[in-house]
Design a binder for these strands. Structure first.
Lengths: 339, 339
DNA sequence: CCGTGTTACTTAATCGGTTAAGTAAATAAA
DNA sequence: TTTATTTACTTAACCGATTAAGTAACACGG
């Protein structure tokens, strides 16, 4: 059986395709009676409109893109959840693209969006992304786009972030309160504003407690699990760190792995705080003190902002910013009590 | 600036749109020289073809849909990873739809696919889905579709599964070898073939070890976290289970939660095995013995199968089946040693 | 009774590509 | 030299919906 089209409905009912289209879109130009007849036949024949014909004509796809580094990170998984919940409610479709932290892939993906494939974009950039070289600047002007979590500092655009500097400051203070004198921060990128802000909060907390900030205070880790494991083991042995702030979920578990390999007891030999949304954090051995980001809400907020812009073109999207606070959840991988 | 179209290229080069189209598609009808001129101008003007125009005419969207219950489950997160890796390689786009275990949502989503929005579908059905009522039977005939993990037994269609019965049998045997005499299986559905197969493996293992299979041997849990928690606590207290097989990731952590609430020691009071892909399983307290499903590979296999069908229409997709084995990873939440 | 609106449609152009069918010129074969 | 074939294009239809513009029929106020 062929696909049912508007033309088929028109022929059956001896009406023009224009009438059918308008009837289906509940236009005031069409009589109640005709609308009923059209709707009835459409239901009977199981008519489903071709979205691409409609998109082509209307220049709107009812589709948004989500561009993220990976899904297997509970922050992004939860964020997708938030995004999808809003999109589904608004009748939008969600295309998903994984960059795997590759700036090249990210660029290729974004370039494609100039085709009009999507009405808007939600993006969390790769660790390699530095806004300068990027066509991002250009794209922001051409298509509604909302950055979330990993944003580009240099670009004027809509952004949903969490309070990274404050969170890092709190985490660091918490480590110090637990007796830590040699804290280190594991960072995933030198370029990302999110990383720099966390570094800033970390540095500030060290300064406020008269602890030195040196070259050894930050370790930049790659996305390569094995390399990171080796790097961590060597660094911990050499520098005798007594506290670690892991700024990504993967890095947090990497620390547990390294500690196990070096026979170090968490938290007595080494305190650990992770930026993580793992629902299993409290069941880890020992349970992991976390900076928990409001992933679901950030996803929702980003999507909501985007849809607001899509609805009214007069809405000045690029000026919107929102910061949703993270929470320090104190568990057994650190020593200080809650205050 | 307006979007660049094929017509604009045509006017600039004093050629017909047909020539431009063919040149861009590297048709043999076009001279090398003209192709170069077209490509050069396209690059210069940053031409990106409108996918919807092309989809409309070619009746192919270069897009697939992934329909799953949720993303915040590491099985599905990894599966998406596998799917996306294949899709990206083949130049396909991936639409994602979350059913949140709602059969109604699932139906609405699938119905939309009759519009031609996607060239193929990868689906893992909801816990509520029973094939019979479903329009699934119909859809399978109309559009290439591959079921993965949670399949519909009654439907003849392409399926990628893991060895659920065998895995459950192994898990049960392992519990029994550790001294368990009152094992219980936590199931997420009465309808799903995946659940029934696991039940079957469980039942068989009990029978082979002269243990009774009663109404209390299986607990059906809903998707409601709080209700599940209460249900679990009560059941464990009442029936004095000494071993639990949690058939979903969420249920595994729910068991840890319930055990903590009841002050039960895992594994001494209660052994636990989870069907789970959590990368943190080995860091849990105690580390969790898991049946680990090959999530990434199942995603890849499902996508590969789908693309094979999309490439050649003569390929008999509905007859394809593949079973990829799961692995029992023995850790500290159970007592028996590896054999 | 005439002009003005309103109602309920139809006609035809349009979105931006793709492709079957046609054509003119050049080349090869007979 | 004539016919057949190949090359490199063009023309125009088409995919399926949307929408600006047009129209016929009827109602209504003055």
């Amino acid at each position: 059986m062929e696909n049912v089209t508007i033309r088929m409905l028109a022929e059956r009912l001896q009406l023009s395709t224009a009438t059918i289209s308008k009837a289906l879109n509940n236009s005031h130009e069409i009589s109640e009676e005709t609308k009923q007849r059209v709707l009835a036949l459409a239901a009977e024949l199981n008519y489903v409109p071709n979205p691409y014909a409609s998109s082509l004509r209307k220049k709107a796809s009812n589709t948004i893109a989500v561009v993220i580094p990976e899904v297997a990170d509970s922050f992004f998984a939860e964020a997708i959840n938030g995004i999808e919940s809003v999109a589904q409610e608004k009748g939008y479709h969600v295309l998903i693209y994984l960059t795997h932290e590759s700036f090249q892939k990210e660029q290729a993906i974004l370039r494609d969006f100039q085709s009009g494939r999507v009405d808007g974009v939600l993006i969390s950039v790769t660790t390699e992304t530095a806004a300068a070289q990027h066509g991002l600047e250009q794209l922001v002007k051409e298509i509604p786009i909302v950055f979330f979590d990993r944003v580009c500092e240099e670009i004027t655009a809509a952004k949903i972030t969490t309070d990274d500097a404050t969170a890092a400051y709190k985490a660091t203070t918490h480590l110090i309160a637990g007796g830590c004198r040699q804290p280190v921060m594991l960072s995933a990128s030198r370029h990302l504003s999110i990383s720099n802000k966390r570094t800033e909060g970390f540095r500030q907390a060290l300064a406020d407690h008269q602890l030195p900030f040196t070259a050894a205070s930050i370790i930049y880790c790659s996305n390569d699990t094995i390399a990171t494991h080796e790097l961590l083991k060597k660094a911990i042995q050499k520098e005798h760190y007594d506290g670690i702030i892991a700024t990504t979920e993967k890095l947090a578990t990497a620390v547990y792995e390294a500690a196990a390999a070096l026979h170090l007891q968490i938290p007595h030999d080494l305190q650990v705080i992770g930026f993580s949304n793992l629902s299993t954090a409290k069941f880890l051995n020992p349970s992991l003190t976390t900076i928990t980001q409001p992933a679901f809400d950030m996803g929702k907020a980003a999507a909501a902002l985007l849809f607001k812009a899509l609805k009214s073109s007069s809405f000045a999207l690029p000026e919107q910013q929102e910061v949703i606070p993270s929470t320090l959840l104190i568990r057994n991988s650190t020593l200080a009590a809650a205050d």
